[in-house]
Structure formats: C-alpha cells, structure tokens
Design a protein around this nucleic acid. Sequence first.
DNA 1: AAAAATAGTTTGCATTGCAAACAAGTTTGC
DNA 2: GCAAACTTGTTTGCAATGCAAACTATTTTT
Lengths: 98, 98
Amino acid sequence: MEIDKVIHEPARLRIMMILQGVEEADFNFLLNTLGLTRGNLSRHMDKLESAGYIKIKKSFNGKLPYTSYQIMKKGLGALEQYWQNLDQVRKGSDLPAE
Amino acid sequence: MEIDKVIHEPARLRIMMILQGVEEADFNFLLNTLGLTRGNLSRHMDKLESAGYIKIKKSFNGKLPYTSYQIMKKGLGALEQYWQNLDQVRKGSDLPAE
DNA sequence: AAAAATAGTTTGCATTGCAAACAAGTTTGC
DNA sequence: GCAAACTTGTTTGCAATGCAAACTATTTTT
C-alpha cells in the first residue's frame, strides 16, 4: 500500500476535496479559498493535470483569460483510494502481523 | 489549521502509529516492519526527536549497540491533533463559508 | 499614453526524502 | 590471530519538491 504523493500534499488534497464537490472551480476561487500564491497554485494544478486527476479548461471571460478546473474520473478514484489507504494507516492494519 | 509536516510524511506517520501502541520499539523492529533503508529510518527518527515527539534510548545489547524509541506526551498530542485536522479536511470543514 | 490591475506562468532557492557511502565495533572462517 | 563478513546505526550527496519572487501578456484606469 502506497500513499499517493500527488494527493498527499495538503494544498492539493484540499484542492481535490473542493473539486470533488463541484462541477468546476476557477483559478481565483481556489486562490481565495486556499490562500496560496498564484505561482504556487498554478504549479499544483499542473501537477494534478499531469497525474490525469483534473482537466484544465482555458477560455476567455470577456477579454481576460479564464481558467477553470474539473476533476476527472481518475482523480475521483485516486481520491477515494487515498482516503481508504489513510484509513488503513490509521487503524494500523497496514502493518504485517496485524 | 495547519497540517503537521513532521507527522504527515507517510513513513513517519506509520512510525508514530506504531510507537503510539507500544511501550517502546527498537531500530530493527521498525526497520523490518516498515521496509525502509537504515539511513532513511535513522533520519526520520532524528526528525521526530527534534520535534520533541519521541525519545531515543541508546544502550547495549550484550556488546552491540541497541537503539530503541519511545513516543512522548508531546508526540501523542501532535498525533491526535494531526488526525483531527485531517478529519477537518476530509469533511471539508476547513474551508471558509462552509 | 503611462500607470496600475488582472490572470496566470516561469524561474530560482531552500527544504526534504532517499539511498549510497561511511564508521565503529563484533563475530566468523581459515 | 587476523582478515573477511556481519551488525548497528550515522553522515553525505543527489534528485525531487514546495514555495514565492519575478516575469509575461493583456486590459483597465487615470
């Protein structure tokens, strides 16, 4: 049993928990909600996209760029698995000779 | 609410969960149980000691050095707090405007 | 038209996890 | 009895990562 490092990072875990509950969320919403710097948020989203956990949707809001994010099936599955794995650790049932 | 990075590292979280349940555990027991390298384990234990979460007890088993570890009150508290914080994240109740 | 704001991205640094190399002694084999 | 191999850890060095400052590109304000 391996803890998923992509999800384990607290900022990304929070992002995944947010995305799990909504249709989609945009850059500024996440920024305000999480209190990260923009650079930091940008990198985290890249990482989540590289893992195939979210989709980045770029468009324009009027003339300004507008970026929003959507969790993907793979991301939902990974998130669920993550919590299950953590439950195992919590119960101690990840140790041999239980 | 801040996730405790000292505990958050999966290897150290497992170590803390083990130490929580026993009087004390020695180096080789942790080594075999967790499947880390010796160097890696040594560093993790240093980190936990620096945080004041465990006590390192050095003695001799016959003529060979023998190192064992014991969780401290501060460590127990931090571990409990850690799980509480993670529960908050899980419930989404760490977000503003809940 | 210059200055400030918006919306992100890229770069660079400091920290950290990890294993290889090292240290210090002990036991085994010849 | 001494060299080789084992035990028990620690230290060193590298690669990856989180983080914020600096940058890009465009738009809005003054």
